[in-house]
Design a protein around this nucleic acid. Structure first.
Lengths: 207, 207
DNA sequence: TGTTCTATAGAACATTCGTTAAATACCAAC
DNA sequence: GTTGGTATTTAACGAATGTTCTATAGAACA
């Protein structure tokens, strides 16, 4: 059966209600606010939401509904990443600059890493990493990467940045695209410079 | 009649309750939590607190008590202030450093100033400003001060920082101690450097 | 002494609100 | 079709909880 969007509306209503009034709505508040026709139907959906771990409630306690908020991390959007340019250097000075924009992401998206920042991808040069023009990559500050980790690698000879999985092999480095249909490229250890690790990629199709 | 400390206990209880459970206590919760013997007594005190604008409530709404929180400003404690040392230079770089400690102050304490930071006073050299060893001064970033404003002034010849009210007089600067029983000192305009304005002084005797 | 204000007590009332039960409707898979 | 899970409706119960009323006591003040 269709998953009704009504539970989303309920969550949204709870959030708004709490924002505006400072305490949680009752079942009957939700009933009116979401045009639901019976208290037991609200109960029903609240029970589902609680099972889904979207809300928490104390039984028999009035107005005890709470949203289970994911931990939110503010990630600064520090610039762009494009084939022909190194990615922005991130030091403590850069951090103090107010980023043009901040992404509010949950730990579900970015994990519990240390220094995280975001870059907007310019151009289609990273299609082999399955990353499109306009995507946003979430980076972690790093100068090195473990085998198998996806990193932003600056290729000195080619004067180019690329996103690849890194593998150290005898006498050479294998850079493996995320797209398994594409072939790895090989280069010398002296030709690469890790500029950061890729933590996540965001692609927003809406809006 | 004595002002009972019970209303302070009630406020504290409400704060703790909300912190722990995510929603406000009922009158009967407060009754148990604060060892009060009747609901109407709790009502009585809550009504007083509401009149004093310490809490807000929606009539007839369960668990609608809310603390009226003053706007809270996080003030970084950036170091010490002592007679023989300039106070720490505050620039955007300093802001990005995580301060050792942060003071949570209300606008009631620090007003609505711009760049605010805190310094711990070391030594008794500022007794003439009625400031003791261990006090905390709240500073506003500034390179100049208006007549009559209390500022942290670096005296170049004396190699010393002092907290005084500044008055410009013909050909000289008058530095007036906060302690009116002490005499002003005079110096040339070229001898002083304003390092910041004093916004507030905190002295905590407890703990 | 009486007055007034704050603080306290006890009890009862009325409403708000979470909970439950039982029945029906809808849709999908078998 | 039958079965089964999800969604919905209606109705009612009873506990949680804000409110009100009345009475009492102590302190401050004139």
């Amino acid at each position: 059966m269709r998953k009704p969007e009504i539970r989303g509306r309920i969550l949204e209503y709870i959030r708004r209600f709490f924002d505006e009034r400072g305490y949680a709505p009752t079942i009957r508040d939700i009933l009116r606010g979401c045009n639901i026709s019976s208290t037991s139907l609200v109960q029903y959906h609240l029970n589902v939401l609680e099972k889904e771990n979207q809300i928490r409630r104390d039984p028999e306690v009035f107005r005890s509904i709470q949203l289970v908020e994911k931990d939110i991390i503010e990630v600064p959007l520090l610039g762009t990443i494009a084939a022909g340019e190194p990615i922005p250097v991130v030091d403590s000075g850069t951090w103090s600059n107010r980023a043009e924009e901040t992404l509010r992401l949950t730990t579900d998206v970015v994990g519990n890493k240390g220094h995280i920042y975001a870059l907007k991808v310019k151009g289609t040069s990273m299609l082999d990493a399955l990353i499109n023009d306009g995507d946003v990559v979430i980076m972690e500050v790093a100068q090195t990467a473990e085998d198998g980790e996806m990193a932003a690698v600056w290729l000195k000879n080619e004067q180019e940045v690329t996103l690849k999985k890194i593998y150290r092999e005898p006498g050479r480095i294998r850079l493996q695209p995320a797209n398994s249909e594409m072939k790895a490229i090989y280069t010398g250890p002296e030709n690469i410079e890790v500029q950061g690790k890729v933590v996540a990629v965001l692609r927003r199709l809406d809006q």
